[in-house]
Nucleic acid binder design. Structure first.
Lengths: 235, 235
DNA sequence: TTTTATATCAACTAATTGGTTGAACCAAGT
DNA sequence: ACTTGGTTCAACCAATTAGTTGATATAAAA
């Protein structure tokens, strides 16, 4: 039955996702996945042939569904940098609150197998025609250029480095998820409190990023406008 | 011979360190370690009994020698927060430029085995007497209190959250190391260029952190003082 | 020189773990 | 009823890998 097929396939993927994200590729055991899926080990091979293949399917799915859309925001030439940042940070947090182990999982496997995964990234994020196809890019010229422009207009700090800023922003996003246990232990937070911390963090990271990027006057103006907008959307 | 003993022991540890940091515990193979140490696999067991024990020795060594001293900076009641931040960020970068795989390695193993590693952390960083011994802490009350005081004096932004700031600072520190390949690929940097990027980053992260923390006027004053001091020390 | 303790290795064992087999099951289609 | 197709499983196999053995070298101690 194809309907039941699809179902068990999904069950397996869900279990595999959990185990892989928890243990990494080499730490994961097919038996563990089978157990958590509540079925025989054979099923995994029946539907996905090998551990490697099962992993690839899941990794690619996670990457394309969850990470790639985020990367795309920062390459969207239709959006102003400030809007790019706001959307990226928000979407990032909303996605990762649903998949808290994803950041560390992706980064770890990425580090262990850069070549293979860069290829996948290239497929998942189609490079726009104008750009050099030689090297895959993860963040964007657009982003950089717009910051240059903001400096010229006197809105942004002249001594801020766009590349350094981007790394800082990403770091601020990832760290709360990647180092969850340290943070939770250090601040003695329950799971619910930690969730609240993450929800709040979203707006803090936006704020932090803009404090780095913008000149004080422009920041104040932006903040006022931003708070007003937020109040309108929340009512 | 005890002198030769010490030597081979060090050789093994060095090889193991590399392999473990590269592959993680479950990805590492005893044979690989033996190969990279240029000796028989038996030697590893002769000197360190088991894979787990070898791993523990190295992990604890790395943690106590490299991470613990950094954590201690943020709990030092003798130092002003601003000085704490400057020293932490600098030391962090200097340490990790020497051991670029360490951050991801520690975080990954930490996430896989929080309980065991929290115990180790507790041993490595003796908790000062006044504090509640129940839960191990990674960052500090001192840090928090001083920021409160800075706000009261009107130096720091009232709406900055000390905990959020700490996570942001740590994230800004770690991310350049943890996501090296992404960053290097995105910006198309050679290894030397990446090293330069990291060297520069040190000062950027300090700057970013203070831009988040301080009110514009106070930041300007600090910056002026800071640049003057830097020029003096570099001559 | 002989003894003794440590260090080293090639070859082996034991345990783990990814992957396979062949039989049973089950739900259409005839 | 019975054939056919995909689905499921317990038991098995093969490969990998942590850990051991027993023999040999070496060099200090007697």
């Amino acid at each position: 039955m194809t309907s039941k097929d699809k179902n068990t396939e999904e069950i397996i993927k869900e279990a595999a996702r959990n185990v892989f994200q928890r243990e990494g590729f080499s730490g994961a055991r097919m038996q563990t996945i089978a157990d958590e899926a509540g079925m025989n080990k054979m099923m995994l091979h029946y539907y996905f042939r090998s551990k490697q293949h099962l992993f690839d399917v899941i990794f690619e799915e996670d990457y394309t569904n969850l990470m790639a859309p985020l990367a795309v925001i920062l390459r969207n030439p239709e959006l102003h940098v400030e809007e790019q940042i706001i959307r990226f940070v928000r979407d990032y947090h909303e996605t990762m609150i649903e998949h808290p182990r994803l950041p560390l999982f992706l980064i770890h496997e990425f580090a262990k197998n850069p070549h293979k995964i860069l290829e996948m990234a290239q497929k998942a994020i189609p490079v726009s025609k104008k750009e050099e196809p030689a090297h895959p890019r993860l963040s964007a010229t657009t982003f950089m250029d717009q910051i240059k422009e903001g400096k010229a207009r006197g809105h942004y700090n002249k001594d801020v480095d766009a590349r350094q800023l981007a790394v800082s922003m990403l770091g601020m996003c990832t760290h709360a998820f990647i180092s969850r246990i340290s943070v939770q232990t250090a601040y003695e937070l329950s799971d619910e409190q930690y969730l609240k911390f993450l929800e709040e963090r979203k707006e803090h990271v936006i704020d932090h990023t803009f404090r780095i990027l913008m000149k004080p006057d422009y920041y104040k103006k932006w903040k006022k406008k931003y708070l007003k907008e937020k109040e309108q959307t929340s009512t």
